[in-house]
Amino acid sequence: MTIRAFIAAATAATALMAGAANAADCPVDVDDPFDLEAAQIEDIYNCLKDAMAEGYAKEGDEIGANYRSWTVTSTRPAVAGPHGNRLLQTFANDVAAEQYLKFAEEGVKMPARSVLAKESITISKKKKQARVGPLFIMTKMEDGAIPETDDWLYAGLQPNGKVMKIKQSFCHDCHVNYPDQDMLAYPLEEVRIGN
């Protein structure tokens, strides 16, 4: 293969990859995600949901490949403010679902092996596009396993399925604001399952 042919092939491959990435972008007609109406959020989610599931599963991570079979905890994604003002949709594994879906505000103690996976959608104000964001993951470990995070292990997957580097204290410094809820911040009330 000549250098010219190699460069042409590389350029074509780059264009194809860029096209695939942009195919997962969806137009948004507001500057602030807090201004999105419910129907707009549902349209955005429908536009990106397949790309999210495929992307998070891409590297073979067990949670990334299986979280969609868990219990969804809200009727649609919503913007709560944490996680960079992203649209968030939380899924709870079988161990976590019963306790989590109570949305209790006091005396919460999640069982060990509870796992929550939170899909996220990033809204670009500059480009007016919605894009797949990280999959944020919380796993409740055995009592005393990680005392500095109240036994929660924080993790995440990038939109391409690669594991994110996460500083535990960065996540926990926000979650520590919910001590009576075992460090859990729930979906907004208007979208919680059962409301």
Rank of each mutant, 00 (worst) to 15 (best):
M1N: 07
M1I: 03
T2Q: 12
I3Y: 12
R4A: 15
F6D: 08
A9W: 04
A10R: 03
T11A: 15
A12N: 05
A12G: 05
A15E: 06
L16I: 15
M17E: 14
A24I: 00
D25R: 13
D25L: 14
D29G: 01
D31R: 05
D31W: 01
P33N: 11
P33L: 09
D35G: 00
D35W: 02
A38F: 05
A39C: 04
D43R: 12
I44D: 00
L48C: 08
K49G: 00
D50E: 14
D50V: 12
A51K: 11
A51I: 00
E54C: 00
G55E: 06
Y56D: 06
E59S: 03
E62T: 13
G64H: 10
A65D: 07
A65W: 00
N66I: 03
N66D: 14
R68K: 15
R68W: 01
R68H: 09
R68I: 08
S69G: 10
S69Y: 03
W70T: 14
T71K: 12
T73N: 05
T73E: 07
T75N: 06
R76Y: 02
V79M: 09
V79D: 03
G81F: 09
G81H: 09
G81Y: 06
H83W: 07
H83I: 14
N85Y: 14
R86M: 11
L88E: 07
Q89C: 08
T90Q: 10
F91V: 02
A92Q: 11
A92I: 10
N93A: 11
A97R: 05
E98I: 06
Q99I: 11
Y100T: 10
K102S: 01
F103N: 04
A104E: 15
K109P: 06
M110E: 07
M110V: 03
A112F: 02
S114M: 11
S114Q: 04
S114P: 04
L116C: 03
A117R: 07
A117F: 10
I121G: 08
I121M: 11
I121P: 10
T122M: 02
T122R: 04
K127Q: 12
K128G: 07
Q129K: 15
Q129D: 06
A130N: 11
R131W: 00
R131F: 00
G133H: 08
P134R: 06
I137A: 11
I137G: 10
M141C: 07
A145M: 00
P147T: 05
P147Q: 02
P147V: 06
E148V: 07
D150W: 00
W152D: 12
L153I: 14
L153R: 13
Y154V: 08
Y154H: 11
N160E: 11
K162G: 07
V163R: 13
K167A: 14
Q168N: 04
F170D: 15
H172M: 10
H172G: 01
D173L: 03
H175M: 12
N177G: 11
P179N: 12
D180W: 01
D180P: 00
D182Y: 02
M183R: 15
L184C: 10
Y186G: 05
E190W: 04
E190L: 04
V191Q: 02
R192E: 06
G194E: 06
N195M: 08
